[in-house]
Design a protein around this nucleic acid. Structure first.
Ligand SMILES: [Mn+2]
Ligand SMILES: [Mn+2]
Ligand SMILES: [Zn+2]
Ligand SMILES: [Zn+2]
Lengths: 136, 136
DNA sequence: TCTTGACTGAGACTCTGTCCATCGTAGGAT
DNA sequence: ATCCTACGATGGACAGAGTCTCAGTCAAGA
Protein backbone atom coordinates (compact mmCIF):
# COMPACT_ATOMS: atom_id res chain seq x y z
CA UNK A 1 0.00 0.00 0.00
CA UNK A 2 2.82 2.41 0.80
CA UNK A 3 3.67 2.93 -2.86
CA UNK A 4 0.10 2.85 -4.08
CA UNK A 5 0.56 6.23 -5.72
CA UNK A 6 3.55 4.91 -7.67
CA UNK A 7 1.60 1.89 -8.89
CA UNK A 8 -1.33 4.02 -9.93
CA UNK A 9 0.89 6.45 -11.81
CA UNK A 10 2.55 3.52 -13.56
CA UNK A 11 -0.87 2.39 -14.70
CA UNK A 12 -1.43 5.74 -16.38
CA UNK A 13 -3.66 7.23 -13.76
CA UNK A 14 -4.13 10.94 -13.73
CA UNK A 15 -3.01 12.04 -10.29
CA UNK A 16 -5.28 14.62 -8.71
CA UNK A 17 -5.18 16.12 -5.25
CA UNK A 18 -8.47 14.35 -4.47
CA UNK A 19 -7.14 10.93 -5.37
CA UNK A 20 -3.95 11.58 -3.44
CA UNK A 21 -5.93 12.46 -0.33
CA UNK A 22 -8.20 9.41 -0.55
CA UNK A 23 -5.18 7.14 -0.91
CA UNK A 24 -3.51 8.89 2.01
CA UNK A 25 -6.56 8.32 4.21
CA UNK A 26 -6.76 4.64 3.31
CA UNK A 27 -3.03 4.27 3.87
CA UNK A 28 -3.29 4.93 7.60
CA UNK A 29 -4.07 2.15 10.03
CA UNK A 30 -7.68 3.05 9.31
CA UNK A 31 -8.76 -0.15 7.70
CA UNK A 32 -12.45 -1.01 7.16
CA UNK A 33 -13.72 2.56 6.85
CA UNK A 34 -17.08 3.28 5.22
CA UNK A 35 -17.21 5.56 2.18
CA UNK A 36 -18.61 8.35 4.34
CA UNK A 37 -15.83 7.90 6.87
CA UNK A 38 -13.29 8.10 4.07
CA UNK A 39 -15.05 11.23 2.87
CA UNK A 40 -15.02 12.83 6.32
CA UNK A 41 -11.32 12.14 6.85
CA UNK A 42 -10.48 13.28 3.33
CA UNK A 43 -12.42 16.49 3.83
CA UNK A 44 -10.20 17.37 6.78
CA UNK A 45 -7.27 17.50 4.37
CA UNK A 46 -9.12 18.83 1.34
CA UNK A 47 -12.35 20.47 2.48
CA UNK A 48 -14.06 20.75 -0.92
CA UNK A 49 -13.77 17.09 -1.90
CA UNK A 50 -17.16 15.73 -2.91
CA UNK A 51 -18.91 12.53 -1.99
CA UNK A 52 -19.17 11.54 -5.64
CA UNK A 53 -15.41 11.76 -6.06
CA UNK A 54 -14.78 9.61 -3.01
CA UNK A 55 -17.21 6.98 -4.31
CA UNK A 56 -15.64 7.13 -7.78
CA UNK A 57 -12.11 6.81 -6.44
CA UNK A 58 -12.98 3.96 -4.08
CA UNK A 59 -14.72 2.14 -6.92
CA UNK A 60 -11.68 2.50 -9.13
CA UNK A 61 -9.30 1.33 -6.43
CA UNK A 62 -11.52 -1.72 -6.00
CA UNK A 63 -11.50 -2.59 -9.71
CA UNK A 64 -7.73 -2.20 -9.73
CA UNK A 65 -7.49 -4.68 -6.88
CA UNK A 66 -5.84 -2.16 -4.56
CA UNK A 67 -8.73 -2.07 -2.10
CA UNK A 68 -11.26 -4.71 -1.09
CA UNK A 69 -14.95 -4.04 -0.55
CA UNK A 70 -16.28 -5.67 2.60
CA UNK A 71 -19.95 -5.77 3.54
CA UNK A 72 -20.32 -7.55 6.84
CA UNK A 73 -23.51 -6.02 8.11
CA UNK A 74 -25.88 -5.24 5.26
CA UNK A 75 -25.32 -1.58 5.94
CA UNK A 76 -22.61 0.60 4.40
CA UNK A 77 -19.81 -1.20 2.58
CA UNK A 78 -16.38 -0.90 4.11
CA UNK A 79 -13.14 -0.35 2.21
CA UNK A 80 -10.11 -2.40 3.13
CA UNK A 81 -6.69 -1.33 1.85
CA UNK A 82 -5.20 -4.62 3.06
CA UNK A 83 -5.78 -6.15 -0.38
CA UNK A 84 -2.43 -7.80 -0.94
CA UNK A 85 -2.71 -10.10 2.08
CA UNK A 86 -5.62 -12.53 1.83
CA UNK A 87 -7.61 -12.66 5.05
CA UNK A 88 -11.08 -13.03 6.50
CA UNK A 89 -13.04 -11.00 9.04
CA UNK A 90 -14.21 -11.44 12.61
CA UNK A 91 -17.10 -9.14 13.52
CA UNK A 92 -18.55 -8.27 16.92
CA UNK A 93 -22.31 -8.71 16.69
CA UNK A 94 -22.84 -6.06 19.34
CA UNK A 95 -20.52 -3.11 18.61
CA UNK A 96 -19.61 -3.91 15.00
CA UNK A 97 -15.86 -3.98 15.61
CA UNK A 98 -13.97 -5.78 12.84
CA UNK A 99 -10.69 -7.69 13.05
CA UNK A 100 -8.65 -9.29 10.32
CA UNK A 101 -8.21 -13.02 10.87
CA UNK A 102 -6.26 -15.74 9.10
CA UNK A 103 -8.01 -19.11 9.29
CA UNK A 104 -6.02 -22.25 8.67
CA UNK A 105 -6.79 -24.17 5.53
CA UNK A 106 -8.42 -23.10 2.29
CA UNK A 107 -12.20 -22.66 2.51
CA UNK A 108 -12.46 -23.44 -1.21
CA UNK A 109 -11.10 -26.92 -0.55
CA UNK A 110 -14.09 -27.59 1.72
CA UNK A 111 -16.55 -27.37 -1.16
CA UNK A 112 -16.64 -30.74 -2.91
CA UNK A 113 -17.24 -30.94 -6.66
CA UNK A 114 -20.77 -32.30 -6.32
CA UNK A 115 -21.64 -29.27 -4.21
CA UNK A 116 -20.51 -26.85 -6.92
CA UNK A 117 -23.39 -27.42 -9.33
CA UNK A 118 -21.25 -26.70 -12.37
CA UNK A 119 -20.18 -23.29 -11.08
CA UNK A 120 -16.66 -22.04 -11.66
CA UNK A 121 -15.98 -21.17 -8.04
CA UNK A 122 -13.25 -18.59 -7.62
CA UNK A 123 -13.55 -17.16 -4.15
CA UNK A 124 -14.69 -17.98 -0.63
CA UNK A 125 -15.45 -15.18 1.77
CA UNK A 126 -15.77 -16.08 5.45
CA UNK A 127 -17.30 -13.86 8.11
CA UNK A 128 -16.92 -15.00 11.71
CA UNK A 129 -19.37 -13.48 14.15
CA UNK A 130 -19.37 -13.31 17.91
CA UNK A 131 -18.85 -10.94 20.82
CA UNK A 132 -15.67 -8.99 21.40
CA UNK A 133 -14.09 -9.01 24.88
CA UNK A 134 -15.61 -5.63 25.76
CA UNK A 135 -19.14 -6.65 24.75
CA UNK A 136 -19.13 -10.20 26.15
CA UNK B 1 -41.11 -24.79 8.43
CA UNK B 2 -44.39 -26.51 7.65
CA UNK B 3 -45.69 -26.01 11.17
CA UNK B 4 -44.25 -22.57 11.57
CA UNK B 5 -47.67 -21.17 12.37
CA UNK B 6 -48.07 -23.70 15.19
CA UNK B 7 -44.70 -22.81 16.66
CA UNK B 8 -45.47 -19.11 16.48
CA UNK B 9 -48.84 -19.58 18.14
CA UNK B 10 -47.17 -21.61 20.86
CA UNK B 11 -44.85 -18.72 21.51
CA UNK B 12 -47.82 -16.45 22.13
CA UNK B 13 -47.84 -14.68 18.81
CA UNK B 14 -50.93 -12.85 17.75
CA UNK B 15 -51.91 -14.50 14.48
CA UNK B 16 -52.99 -11.99 11.87
CA UNK B 17 -53.91 -12.54 8.24
CA UNK B 18 -50.81 -10.56 7.25
CA UNK B 19 -48.45 -12.77 9.22
CA UNK B 20 -50.15 -15.90 7.93
CA UNK B 21 -49.66 -14.76 4.34
CA UNK B 22 -45.99 -13.86 4.82
CA UNK B 23 -45.32 -17.27 6.35
CA UNK B 24 -47.19 -18.94 3.51
CA UNK B 25 -45.06 -17.11 0.93
CA UNK B 26 -41.82 -18.07 2.64
CA UNK B 27 -43.01 -21.64 2.98
CA UNK B 28 -42.94 -22.27 -0.78
CA UNK B 29 -39.79 -23.34 -2.57
CA UNK B 30 -39.12 -19.61 -2.83
CA UNK B 31 -36.01 -19.39 -0.77
CA UNK B 32 -33.76 -16.31 -0.78
CA UNK B 33 -36.45 -13.76 -1.64
CA UNK B 34 -35.89 -10.07 -0.98
CA UNK B 35 -38.28 -8.20 1.31
CA UNK B 36 -39.86 -6.55 -1.73
CA UNK B 37 -40.31 -9.90 -3.43
CA UNK B 38 -41.98 -11.24 -0.30
CA UNK B 39 -44.17 -8.16 -0.29
CA UNK B 40 -45.14 -8.59 -3.96
CA UNK B 41 -46.06 -12.26 -3.51
CA UNK B 42 -47.92 -11.54 -0.30
CA UNK B 43 -49.87 -8.77 -1.97
CA UNK B 44 -51.23 -11.26 -4.50
CA UNK B 45 -52.91 -13.05 -1.63
CA UNK B 46 -53.72 -10.02 0.51
CA UNK B 47 -53.64 -6.95 -1.72
CA UNK B 48 -53.45 -4.26 0.91
CA UNK B 49 -50.61 -5.65 2.98
CA UNK B 50 -48.06 -2.92 3.58
CA UNK B 51 -44.31 -2.90 3.16
CA UNK B 52 -43.86 -1.95 6.80
CA UNK B 53 -45.76 -5.02 7.95
CA UNK B 54 -43.68 -7.30 5.73
CA UNK B 55 -40.48 -5.78 7.12
CA UNK B 56 -41.78 -6.11 10.67
CA UNK B 57 -42.81 -9.71 10.21
CA UNK B 58 -39.57 -10.72 8.51
CA UNK B 59 -37.59 -9.05 11.28
CA UNK B 60 -39.54 -10.94 13.90
CA UNK B 61 -39.13 -14.27 12.14
CA UNK B 62 -35.39 -13.59 12.03
CA UNK B 63 -35.14 -12.87 15.75
CA UNK B 64 -37.13 -16.01 16.45
CA UNK B 65 -34.63 -18.01 14.41
CA UNK B 66 -37.27 -19.17 11.94
CA UNK B 67 -35.73 -17.32 9.00
CA UNK B 68 -32.16 -16.38 8.17
CA UNK B 69 -31.10 -13.04 6.76
CA UNK B 70 -28.61 -13.38 3.92
CA UNK B 71 -26.80 -10.45 2.34
CA UNK B 72 -24.57 -11.73 -0.38
CA UNK B 73 -24.33 -8.73 -2.66
CA UNK B 74 -24.48 -5.50 -0.68
CA UNK B 75 -27.90 -4.90 -2.17
CA UNK B 76 -31.22 -5.97 -0.67
CA UNK B 77 -31.08 -8.58 2.08
CA UNK B 78 -32.62 -11.94 1.27
CA UNK B 79 -34.76 -14.03 3.58
CA UNK B 80 -34.09 -17.73 3.84
CA UNK B 81 -36.71 -19.97 5.48
CA UNK B 82 -34.25 -22.88 5.44
CA UNK B 83 -33.15 -21.98 8.95
CA UNK B 84 -33.18 -25.41 10.54
CA UNK B 85 -30.58 -26.89 8.17
CA UNK B 86 -27.20 -25.20 8.54
CA UNK B 87 -25.77 -24.38 5.12
CA UNK B 88 -23.71 -21.86 3.19
CA UNK B 89 -24.27 -20.06 -0.11
CA UNK B 90 -22.80 -20.18 -3.59
CA UNK B 91 -23.46 -17.02 -5.59
CA UNK B 92 -23.04 -16.34 -9.30
CA UNK B 93 -21.07 -13.11 -9.65
CA UNK B 94 -22.77 -12.39 -12.96
CA UNK B 95 -26.49 -13.13 -12.61
CA UNK B 96 -26.78 -13.24 -8.82
CA UNK B 97 -28.21 -16.75 -8.70
CA UNK B 98 -27.90 -18.33 -5.24
CA UNK B 99 -27.58 -22.01 -4.34
CA UNK B 100 -27.47 -23.65 -0.95
CA UNK B 101 -24.25 -25.60 -0.42
CA UNK B 102 -22.96 -27.86 2.33
CA UNK B 103 -19.18 -27.64 2.70
CA UNK B 104 -17.37 -30.44 4.50
CA UNK B 105 -15.88 -29.62 7.85
CA UNK B 106 -16.71 -26.90 10.35
CA UNK B 107 -15.47 -23.44 9.31
CA UNK B 108 -15.31 -22.48 12.98
CA UNK B 109 -12.68 -25.15 13.54
CA UNK B 110 -10.41 -23.36 11.07
CA UNK B 111 -10.08 -20.31 13.32
CA UNK B 112 -7.38 -21.05 15.90
CA UNK B 113 -7.63 -19.59 19.39
CA UNK B 114 -4.85 -17.05 18.87
CA UNK B 115 -6.79 -15.71 15.89
CA UNK B 116 -9.90 -15.08 17.99
CA UNK B 117 -8.57 -12.08 19.96
CA UNK B 118 -10.70 -12.92 22.99
CA UNK B 119 -13.94 -12.93 21.00
CA UNK B 120 -16.66 -15.44 21.80
CA UNK B 121 -17.05 -16.68 18.23
CA UNK B 122 -20.42 -18.26 17.60
CA UNK B 123 -20.92 -18.39 13.87
CA UNK B 124 -19.05 -18.62 10.57
CA UNK B 125 -20.79 -17.52 7.41
CA UNK B 126 -19.20 -18.57 4.12
CA UNK B 127 -20.07 -17.10 0.74
CA UNK B 128 -18.63 -18.86 -2.28
CA UNK B 129 -18.52 -16.78 -5.44
CA UNK B 130 -18.06 -17.77 -9.05
CA UNK B 131 -19.89 -18.14 -12.32
CA UNK B 132 -22.88 -20.39 -12.82
CA UNK B 133 -22.95 -22.76 -15.83
CA UNK B 134 -25.16 -20.39 -17.82
CA UNK B 135 -22.92 -17.36 -17.23
CA UNK B 136 -19.53 -19.08 -17.62
C1' DT C 1 -69.76 -9.40 23.77
C1' DC C 2 -66.41 -6.25 25.59
C1' DT C 3 -61.94 -4.57 26.31
C1' DT C 4 -57.41 -3.64 25.40
C1' DG C 5 -52.97 -3.63 23.93
C1' DA C 6 -50.55 -5.46 20.10
C1' DC C 7 -50.60 -5.08 15.12
C1' DT C 8 -51.30 -2.61 10.69
C1' DG C 9 -50.99 0.94 7.02
C1' DA C 10 -49.59 5.19 4.55
C1' DG C 11 -46.30 7.91 3.78
C1' DA C 12 -42.57 10.78 5.40
C1' DC C 13 -37.97 10.16 6.48
C1' DT C 14 -33.01 8.32 6.68
C1' DC C 15 -29.16 6.20 4.83
C1' DT C 16 -26.36 4.57 1.14
C1' DG C 17 -25.15 4.91 -3.32
C1' DT C 18 -25.59 6.44 -8.47
C1' DC C 19 -26.19 9.68 -12.28
C1' DC C 20 -25.76 13.84 -14.83
C1' DA C 21 -24.46 18.39 -16.65
C1' DT C 22 -21.12 21.52 -16.11
C1' DC C 23 -16.77 23.22 -14.70
C1' DG C 24 -11.77 22.60 -13.71
C1' DT C 25 -7.25 20.89 -14.40
C1' DA C 26 -3.22 17.30 -15.20
C1' DG C 27 -0.12 16.52 -18.13
C1' DG C 28 1.25 15.94 -23.00
C1' DA C 29 2.16 18.94 -27.05
C1' DT C 30 4.25 23.06 -28.87
C1' DA D 1 6.28 28.61 -20.23
C1' DT D 2 1.91 28.32 -22.32
C1' DC D 3 -1.82 26.08 -24.58
C1' DC D 4 -5.23 22.29 -25.30
C1' DT D 5 -8.26 19.02 -24.24
C1' DA D 6 -9.79 14.78 -22.54
C1' DC D 7 -10.38 13.11 -18.20
C1' DG D 8 -11.70 14.05 -13.50
C1' DA D 9 -14.35 16.80 -9.92
C1' DT D 10 -18.48 18.92 -8.28
C1' DG D 11 -23.14 19.37 -6.28
C1' DG D 12 -27.54 18.30 -6.68
C1' DA D 13 -31.12 15.43 -8.25
C1' DC D 14 -32.39 10.83 -8.14
C1' DA D 15 -33.00 5.89 -6.72
C1' DG D 16 -33.10 1.70 -3.76
C1' DA D 17 -33.55 -0.25 0.70
C1' DG D 18 -35.10 0.11 5.02
C1' DT D 19 -37.06 2.66 9.40
C1' DC D 20 -40.31 5.37 11.98
C1' DT D 21 -44.66 7.50 13.47
C1' DC D 22 -49.12 7.47 14.96
C1' DA D 23 -53.94 7.03 14.15
C1' DG D 24 -56.92 3.32 13.37
C1' DT D 25 -57.98 -1.81 13.58
C1' DC D 26 -58.68 -6.24 15.45
C1' DA D 27 -57.15 -10.94 17.83
C1' DA D 28 -57.98 -13.13 21.64
C1' DG D 29 -58.72 -13.54 26.53
C1' DA D 30 -62.21 -12.35 30.19
MN1 LIG E 1 -9.61 -6.62 6.47
MN1 LIG F 1 -30.07 -20.74 1.82
ZN1 LIG G 1 -18.14 -5.53 20.66
ZN1 LIG H 1 -25.04 -16.73 -13.52
Amino acid sequence: MSDLLERLRARGWRMTSQRRVVAQVLDGDHTHLTADEVHARSARLLPEISRATVYNTLGELVSLGEVIEVSTDGRAKRYDPNAHHPHQHLVCASCGMIRDVHPTGDPLADLPAQERFGFTVSEAEVTYRGLCPACA
